[in-house]
Design a binder for these strands. Structure first.
Lengths: 208, 208
DNA sequence: AAACTCTAACGCAATTTGGGTGAGTGAGTT
DNA sequence: AACTCACTCACCCAAATTGCGTTAGAGTTT
């Protein structure tokens, strides 16, 4: 049944921590069963707290929030973690999501947005602040300014999938020598001298 | 200044098309400058329409909406495309985003959500339906049930980045022979016999 | 005409790769 | 204490791959 959703808050600033607790407690559908000022304590009690949702700050004394997400998901995979932080840094966002976060809110979010997010989680969503959603969606976009020809991109993608020259040749129905030529040209254009460098540069520049 | 946002709608169902047009036209901030029943016509006029936003259906007669996004972004990269469709299929969602879509709404979205989405785009967001957001965020999550040891995962990731055995060895400060052993064990566990197969299987199973 | 793109070929040398077998150490568990 | 894993390293082998240089024809687009 739907019942009351149990919530744990991990946030080192006592003022913000209490503010979140008060805010959430206003809704009868949610109950804040525990709050922590650091990740270690939260992790220690996660298995007994067994919350449905965990609000997690990133900047914490001791273990940071990102690493904490990994630990928590390992112990209690069903806990949905929402990051609540001031950081909008790309890298942090992606790390948090990779570790298993289900949502990512920035602290400038209006209080109502926090509550909405809890509801959104229940509905199978992934609550994100406006800018975070754009970051995430943009991560799928390719760079349209590429020095590589369409065929070269195709070859590079197959190369990045771990295929050998011959395997790529078979996939594209051309001779192995042709692939060798393409790859030589790719290296020239990207100014690299190896497969790993080419893949790294292409991924970084979002050519593939 | 912000001014009026120009919108183009591509949707083959005349009823839905008109419904969207009517809905959006109620807001003075937005103007529907053109509507099309197929992708080809929309693309043909994109450079002269020069809309700010394009609402794109997926299922269309002739060229499908996904391919249309690519064409449109090639001609007019600044046009923000929002997909509006009945399909919630993972693959379609990711394809659309890869082609350059800025948002993805399902047609069961309440009318207000459509309008909200236009506003969200303006604010630098990426409007998505609840389930789509979850799909997108989940795509970052790793599978926590993996037959591979932490070290093996590490090796496999480096292998997937295009590095050679020796390069991996150098990165991890161990001998090349050790990497060879790890990779042999990875192949055994994944039941594969080559780099490409291992990477493919690992990516598919979201081990890496 | 110039500039790409895609295709292909030949030579060469060093490295890589996949497979087999064996083995020592340390951590953690039963 | 015995046992299982994870991690480390070693040696053998043969085939395949990789990176680099050079050249070149056919086709398309500007």
């Amino acid at each position: 049944m739907a019942g009351t959703r149990q919530i744990v808050i991990v946030e080192d600033d006592p003022i913000i921590r209490e503010a979140f607790k008060t805010l959430i407690s206003q809704k009868s559908e949610y109950r804040v069963i525990n709050t922590y000022s650091n990740a270690e304590d939260a992790i220690k009690n996660m298995a007994t707290d067994l919350p449905d949702i965990c609000l997690m700050d990133i900047e914490l004394p001791g273990m940071n929030g990102i690493d904490a997400i990994g630990k928590i998901k390992k112990i209690t995979p069903d806990v949905q973690v929402i990051v609540v932080t001031v950081y909008e840094n790309d890298e942090l966002v992606f790390k948090a999501l990779c570790e298993g976060a289900s949502g990512y809110l920035t602290k400038n979010s209006p209080p109502a947005k926090i509550i909405d997010s809890l509801k959104e989680l229940e509905n199978g969503g992934a609550p994100m602040s406006t800018n975070i959603a754009r970051l995430v969606v943009s991560s799928f976009h390719r760079n349209r300014q590429t020095p590589l020809s369409p065929r070269e991109l195709e070859v590079l993608e197959l190369l990045a999938s771990g295929k050998s020259y011959s395997a790529i040749a078979d996939t594209l129905f051309v001779d192995k020598e042709t692939i060798r030529t393409h790859i030589k040209n790719i290296y020239l254009k990207l100014e690299v001298h190896s497969k790993a460098e080419a893949i790294e540069k292409a991924r970084k520049s979002k050519y593939i």
